[in-house]
């Protein structure tokens, strides 16, 4: 890890995160993130070369449930919160481009 964090391209990260940001939000977030990332550089001061990363607070083995069919939510419960629906399906803007 370097001593100072690299410049952050917030516009690009926002694109990855699929959040449209205003210019003002972009500059504020750039400032905030630089500050936070500079702070977390301190993690470099501990020797973690031989430390196993900890992904979970308690050991979990074989968290699969038995493969038996269960009851799902009924269709109307699944669709009732959809902002737009039609013919028992979620309605979305057109995905494919028109043929020329």
């Amino acid at each position: 890890m370097q001593n100072t964090s690299p410049a952050i391209d917030v516009a690009y990260i926002a694109q990855l995160a699929k959040i449209e940001l205003t210019n003002e939000e972009q500059s504020r977030l750039t400032r905030d993130l630089e500050q936070i990332l500079n702070y977390v550089q301190q993690l470099g001061k501990w020797d973690t070369q031989h430390v196993e990363p900890m992904y979970h607070p308690i050991p979990i083995f074989d968290a699969l449930r038995p493969d038996v069919p269960g009851k799902s939510l009924p269709l109307n419960a699944t669709l009732c919160n959809a902002p737009q629906q039609e013919d028992d399906q979620f309605r979305v803007p057109k995905v494919v481009e028109s043929a020329h």
Binding site: M1, I8, V10, I13, A14, L16, A17, I19, L29, L33, I36, L37, V40, L43, G44, W46, T48, V51, E52, P53, M54, Y55
Partner: peptide
């Protein structure tokens, strides 16, 4: 979300996310 996307993005994941998981173990 932006910070989380950044620390998981290509090139930074080991420097931030993996290191944070190791610090968590400590």
């Amino acid at each position: 979300i932006i910070l989380g996307t950044y620390v998981l993005s290509g090139g930074y994941c080991d420097a931030y996310y993996a290191r944070a998981q190791k610090a968590r173990a400590l």
